[in-house]
Amino acid sequence: MTADPTVWRVNGMPLAPATGRGPLDGLRVAVKDLFAVTGFAVGGGNPAWLAEALPAAEDAPAVARLRAAGAVVQGIAHTDELAYSLSGINAHYGTPPNPAAPGLVTGGSSSGPASAVASGHADVGLGTDTGGSIRVPASCCGLFGLRPTHGAVPTEGVLPLAPSFDTVGWITRDARTLAAVGDVLLPPGPALAPRRLFCLGGTSGAAATLGLPVTEVTLSTWDDPDPLLLAFRRVQAAEAWRGQGAWIEAHPRALAPDVEGRFRFGAQVSAGEEADARARIAAWRAELLELLGDDAWLALPAGGPGHPRGLGPAGRDDWRRDTLRCAVPASAYGLPSVAVPTGASPPAGLALVAPPGADRALLALVAERLAGDVSR
């Protein structure tokens, strides 16, 4: 069968074989086009970037670990340009299909890996999550996805966006595979479940399926998310511009206008504004961790459903803000968060957010309570 060019930049049978045997034997991985894969250039979702990139001399550590554990790289899957979008729309390569909701986008920026997993052409989507780019496509496609604690999985060999928030994450059709990948990629950590869940955004019904006591709460940053979203945007954009601004200046109009605009916003962020934004984020993080204490996690919408594939720029901006409201707290605070399907149609998942280092506990709870396969 011909590979869908809106999903895959390049694929094979497989593209790169396993280098060892282990718990992931035979699993097929769709690698987001930000990761180094030996012998292939990183394209970053942009033809001009790809044209100047050299083949990687070695795998990114995350890719190497998966291959050593028995997984194969099925192919390199598309991303939103330089990972700085959330819809899954790429002006150069198209919009990958969402098998769970054909009229809607997959969400991004791990759009290609999510589509490959949702369609059954891969078992694992290896991607990145800076502002929601694992959890949002997982939610929009009815899949499972983990954003780990910031720094828990190495990001070497991965094209950066905003290093203060960048994480390596993954997407699967079932909870047990999600946990199996975690066993390979995550450092050791406790696997103790919380005693209760605090719920935002009317998620108590979905959260109750996990079998824990639930309590509806409110947070100022949820009721009025704009201050947190602005602080996050300033830090993210400032870092993104420092990383890629010189290339963007040298390649005018190489990016879609909305993506380039996000990068150029970073050039306008002053050092004082960035420092103030970081201080605000740190204060809000401390407040949330104090609320959670030692025995509670947070449940909130994971974002989704995806917006209509033909939605115009204004509508996409509104959808983006609503989605970031759900995704940014874990991103800004460096906390682990797992998106799980709820059975809603069209898909819109539930996100659990835990204190730092509780990645394995998140995966253990989800694998125990939600172990069914949601493939279609």
Score class of each variant (00 low, 15 high):
Met1Gln: 14
Thr6Gln: 05
Pro17Met: 05
Pro17Trp: 07
Arg21Ile: 10
Pro23Asp: 07
Arg28Gln: 11
Ala30Gly: 07
Asp33Ser: 03
Ala36Gly: 01
Val37Ser: 03
Ala41Thr: 12
Gly44Ala: 12
Gly45Leu: 14
Gly45Lys: 10
Leu50Phe: 15
Leu50Ile: 03
Ala51Arg: 12
Glu52His: 10
Glu52Asp: 12
Ala56Lys: 10
Ala57Trp: 03
Asp59Glu: 05
Ala60Lys: 11
Arg65Phe: 04
Ala71Glu: 13
Val72His: 11
Gln74Cys: 02
His78Pro: 10
His78Ala: 02
Asp80Asn: 09
Tyr84Arg: 13
Ser87Lys: 10
Ile89Gln: 13
Gly94Pro: 05
Asn98Val: 12
Asn98His: 02
Pro99Ala: 09
Ala100Ile: 02
Ala101Asp: 06
Gly103Phe: 04
Val105Asn: 04
Ser110Phe: 03
Ser110Pro: 06
Ser111Met: 10
Val117Phe: 02
Gly120Phe: 08
Leu126Glu: 15
Cys141Gln: 04
Ala152Arg: 15
Val153Phe: 02
Val153Lys: 05
Leu159Thr: 01
Val168Gln: 06
Thr172Trp: 00
Ala175Asp: 01
Ala175Met: 05
Ala179His: 12
Ala179Arg: 15
Val181Asp: 12
Gly182Tyr: 13
Asp183Trp: 05
Asp183Phe: 08
Leu185Asn: 07
Leu186Phe: 06
Pro187Ile: 09
Pro187Asn: 02
Ala193Leu: 04
Pro194Cys: 08
Arg195Glu: 15
Phe198Asp: 01
Phe198Val: 00
Ser204Cys: 05
Ser204Ile: 00
Ala206Leu: 14
Thr209Val: 11
Thr209His: 13
Leu210Pro: 00
Thr215Gln: 14
Thr215Gly: 01
Thr218Met: 00
Leu229Asn: 14
Leu230Lys: 07
Leu230Glu: 13
Ala231Thr: 04
Arg233Pro: 00
Ala237Glu: 07
Ala238Trp: 03
Trp241Ile: 03
Trp241Asp: 01
Ile248Pro: 04
Ala250Asp: 05
Arg253Pro: 00
Pro257Asn: 01
Val259Ala: 06
Gly261Ala: 15
Arg262Thr: 10
Ala267Asn: 07
Glu273Leu: 08
Asp276Ser: 09
Ala283Trp: 02
Arg285Asp: 02
Glu290Gly: 06
Gly293Lys: 04
Asp294Ile: 09
Trp297Val: 12
Leu300His: 01
Leu300Asn: 01
Gly310Tyr: 04
Gly312Asp: 15
Pro313Met: 04
Asp317Thr: 15
Asp318Trp: 15
Val328Tyr: 11
Pro329Gly: 14
Ser331Phe: 00
Ala332Arg: 12
Val338Lys: 05
Val340Arg: 09
Pro341Asp: 14
Pro346Tyr: 07
Pro346Phe: 06
Gly349Val: 02
Ala354Cys: 03
Ala358His: 15
Asp359Trp: 11
Ala361Ile: 06
Leu362Met: 09
Ala364Tyr: 05
Val366Asn: 04
